[in-house]
Each structure stands twice: as structure tokens, then as C-alpha cells.
Design a protein around this nucleic acid. Structure first.
Lengths: 127, 127
DNA sequence: CGGAATCCAAGATGATACTG
DNA sequence: CAGTATCATCTTGGATTCCG
């Protein structure tokens, strides 16, 4: 394997690996585009939230799924978890720099859908 | 219902309805961010594909899920299906103008992940 | 070739109860 | 408050088979 250090350009040209079954990107994509992952990222784009704040904001999420989603996003390096050692417990969640970057992409997608919802609904009927 | 025609600005400011359980956007978001929805949209960004082309390109997808995903995206108005009445059957799938728009958002997300995968993997270990 | 239909395994999600 | 643990359920996804 004569493998030179992959340049930024090479990486940019390497598109399409997501189509491969074993591509690690698929896992990340799965986390980020999961039912609650999307909403949590968008919610955190507005700033730091406590666990219960997020639970209230993201309608319909259960404690279990919120905790699980947050742990997952934290492990991927998108979410920062700060636990203040007080009683009662106080835990703050915010986006890391990477989290903000990917959050922008996700938010762009969500916003597009919200804005174009009328056209989409129309297309659904019209077709 | 004294409902004035919602201005573009009003729509832009209406962010956050996705957080509501009953928001219709959630359904669309679900279709678009589904396991195979993302990959099909990105695949179709490269141009028209036949069913079996997509099946080959999108690694790991079963016939059932591909068909289901395509129908769903077609109903939402993102995918155009053209069936040529020949034998053997020949069916072409492509993106509608709306599909291209949302496809760009999805692709941007997928590309970001692929490009930043090294950093993500590093963060996973480092954290 | 491009599906539709069926059956079944696996994983995601939810309600509830409990804990530091 | 911020979770964890457990169990029940509901949805996804895949293998297979059949059809125009």
C-alpha cells in the first residue's frame, strides 16, 4: 500500500463512500439524522440547555430517548455535557464547535422543509 | 379563521414548529432523513438512475426498502418516476426541482460528515 | 426488469418505576 | 433534577416468493 497522506483535495474527491455498506460515515449519519438527533441538534443551536429544558422543548421525546440521543451525540463530539456537582443535580448541554457546524447543516435542512411545507403538501395532492 | 397570506418573513420567523409533536414537517423530515432516503437523494443528485442502478449504487439496500423509499419520496414530490412501457420494463428515477433543492441540503450534510470523519473519529477516542 | 406480497427477526421507541 | 433499569410495543428492515 503506497499510501500518501491524503490531501484535503483528495478527501473532497473521495465522495461516494457513503454508498458503501461499511462506510463509517453511515453510523454518524444515522446518529445525526435520527428521529431525535435532528431535533436535539437544532434545539441546541439556540444555545445551552438543561436536560429538562430540552425535554420540554423537543415535543414528544421520552427521558430515555433524550438521554440516549445526548450520549450518542456527545460521544461523536457534537455535544458538550457539563455536570455541576450540586444538589439537586444541574447538567448543561451545548454544542461543540463541530456540533455547531453540523448543526447548521441539519438546521438548514429542517428550515427548508418548514418553509417549503406548503409546496410539498401541494405536490403530495397534485401528483 | 382570519388568516392573512403568510409572508416570506413570517414563514422565516415561524421556526420551531418542528418541535411540536403534530408538526407535519416531522413526517417529511422522517422520509428525507431515513436510512435509505438520504442515500437515494444523494445518489439521484448525480442524475437519472434506473431502479437496478440505484440498487447497485446504494450499497446494502433491499429491493423492498428501495421501492418503499422511492414511492415515499415520489409522493412528497422530490422524485420523478418515469415508466417506459417496454418489455422488459424500464423505469427511470430522477429528482424534481424540489428534490434537487432538498437534495443539496442532504448532500451538504453527508459531505460534511465524510470530510470531517477523521476529526469525528478522533473526538470519539479523545473524549 | 421492476416491482408487490408475505412472513419474520431485529432494533427503535415508549411507559413506568426507581435512584443518587 | 437527571438520569438508569426493566419490560412491553411498535416500527424497520430483510429474505423469500411470485407476477406482469
Amino acid at each position: 500500500m503506497t499510501q500518501t497522506k491524503p490531501s484535503k483535495l483528495a478527501e473532497l474527491l473521495r465522495r461516494g463512500e457513503i454508498f458503501a455498506v461499511e462506510c463509517p460515515s453511515r453510523e454518524i449519519l444515522k446518529h445525526v439524522t435520527s428521529r431525535w438527533g435532528v431535533l436535539v441538534l437544532v434545539a441546541l443551536m439556540a444555545g445551552t440547555h438543561r436536560f429538562s429544558d430540552l425535554r420540554r422543548k423537543v415535543g414528544g421525546v421520552s427521558e430515555k430517548m433524550l438521554a440516549q440521543t445526548l450520549q450518542c451525540l456527545e460521544k461523536d463530539g457534537f455535544v458538550r455535557r457539563v455536570s455541576l456537582p450540586v444538589v439537586p443535580p444541574h447538567v448543561e448541554y451545548s454544542l461543540t464547535p463541530m456540533g455547531e457546524e453540523i448543526g447548521r447543516k441539519v438546521e438548514a435542512l429542517a428550515d427548508w422543509i418548514e418553509i417549503n411545507l406548503p409546496q410539498i403538501m401541494e405536490a403530495q395532492r397534485g401528483a
